[in-house]
């Protein structure tokens, strides 16, 4: 069970809703992923063009928790504004703080992320900051009282997987709130690895939406996250430099 603030979830997969090839594929992918938390972006409506279908409006909103992001913000003030807009929909009180500090790498701005998190906590939001994998920054966010920490595995949409497992392990070890590895996951092995490191959840989007078969990949990610979590709880064997035989060395059959 994943608990964020007072909300409980049986799935540890948080799924993004961007860039799917079709609404049909997206609906099926969301369903088979069994994700309960879906991320969205907040944008100006294109009201001057013919009515365009909107994925959110096709969802059974009783079944999903919406996690709007503040993507597009480059300062804490902009992020707070976007979060307040999202909350005014009456559909959500959680927010993914996403403040990009570098347009090329899309890495988060640590200073603005920290400031925005503090401001949003004061406003009563459930705050989930997307951060770099900096251990000290993660600790400072925890000390502010955020409800989960979401360190990136690698740059957004890069699919490079977990670049710094040591930092993620240290963040997980010190954190008193759930750690959700967000961004950079490319394949099921990355998601499973995050969970084996002890992460409480994984947030991914492009790994599913840009897969050749997004529906199948959504299921693969669900299974990988479950496998990784079980593996973590089971406690893996030690890593050794030399072989240790699995078969008995006694009673060898004579030639």
């Amino acid at each position: 069970m994943l608990q964020i603030a007072d909300k409980k979830f049986s799935s540890r997969l948080l799924l993004g809703t961007g860039k799917y090839p079709s609404f049909e594929a997206q609906k099926k992918a969301v369903a088979v992923s069994e994700a309960e938390i879906l991320t969205f972006a907040v944008r100006r409506m294109n009201i001057f063009e013919a009515s365009q279908p909107n994925f959110l409006e096709q969802l059974d909103l009783d079944r999903y928790t919406l996690l709007p992001n503040t993507a597009g913000a480059s300062t804490a003030e902009e992020a707070v504004h976007i979060a307040k807009l999202a909350k005014a929909s009456g559909l959500c009180d959680m927010v993914k703080v996403e403040i990009i500090g570098c347009s090329r790498s899309l890495l988060p701005d640590p200073v603005e992320t920290l400031r925005a998190s503090e401001m949003l906590l004061e406003e009563g939001f459930i705050v989930l900051p997307y951060t770099s994998d900096d251990v000290v920054l993660a600790r400072k966010l925890c000390e502010l009282g955020v409800h989960a920490i979401m360190p990136g595995a690698a740059p957004i949409g890069s699919g490079k997987g977990i670049l710094n497992p040591l930092n993620l392990s240290l963040i997980i070890e010190q954190s008193k709130v759930p750690v959700i590895v967000d961004a950079g996951i490319g394949s099921p092995k990355d998601a499973s690895y995050a969970m084996e490191l002890g992460a409480d959840g994984v947030l991914l989007n492009t790994a599913v939406s840009e897969a050749a078969n997004p529906v199948m990949m959504a299921e693969a990610m669900k299974l990988a996250i479950e496998a990784g979590r079980l593996g973590y709880k089971a406690g893996r064997m030690p890593v050794r430099d030399y072989a240790v035989a699995s078969s008995p060395l006694e009673g060898l059959v004579p030639n």
């Binding site: 993004g16 809703t17 961007g18 860039k19 799917y20 997206q26 991320t39 969205f40 972006a41 907040v42 944008r43 100006r44 409506m45 009201i47 909107n54 994925f55 959110l56 919406l66 709007p68 992001n69 993507a71 807009l85 999202a86 929909s89 957004i156 949409g157 961004a183 947030l203 991914l204 989007n205 492009t206």
Partner: peptide
């Protein structure tokens, strides 16, 4: 007046 909505995003 600004009319704003939710769109797909990660």
């Amino acid at each position: 007046i600004e009319i704003i909505h939710f769109v797909g995003g990660g």
